[in-house]
Design a protein around this nucleic acid. Sequence first.
DNA 1: GGTAAGATCAGC
DNA 2: CTGATCTTACCA
Length: 192
Amino acid sequence: MRRRILPRSFYEGDPREVAATLLGKLLVGRDGRVGRIVEVEAYCGADDPASHAYRGMTPRNATMFGPPGHLYVYFTYGMHFCANVVCWPQGVAGAVLLRGVIPVSGVDQMRVSRQAWRATPVRDAVLTDGPAKLCQAFGIDLADDGADLVKGDRGMRVFDDGVSTVRPTITPRVGVTKGAQLPWRFHAGPVM
DNA sequence: GGTAAGATCAGC
DNA sequence: CTGATCTTACCA
């Protein structure tokens, strides 16, 4: 089926709704890298103690307060990048963390990117199944913070190719200590 | 100026 | 389960 860029309006709503509907969509990156989004988490800004935006705007999280449909990328644990899709209207912080994709194409390039600096081989099964892993695989770093996913100004876009997903599995978020009980993680089962 | 925690990952 | 690795935010 034909690929259609998700419009800006897709991202203007509540991160929890955007997260649920983002499952099954295609993350299209540079060098032909494409992945189907199968795991995401919603972060609800001022309403969410686990959100980087819970206590207001800082230099790091400023992108989250900007217009929706942009990428919010942050650096953490001294070595990893994580990528989010900015939601809600400009001025209201909220985002969806991209936690996992299934490679659709450009797998060779993903392997190369993931293998860099590593001595032992990276198994395909764990190529893009984590927020920092998919950033590595797609070559996403701080230079992509603020990238427009609708215009594709930095080669990153999100498409809908009409593929249907099964009902998402909903669980508490991974790796958070505050708001740990909130069921804001959405995981796709098999994608057809 | 000091420091604790962090939306993680890989290896044992 | 632990080590790696360092930025950020918060407190004094």
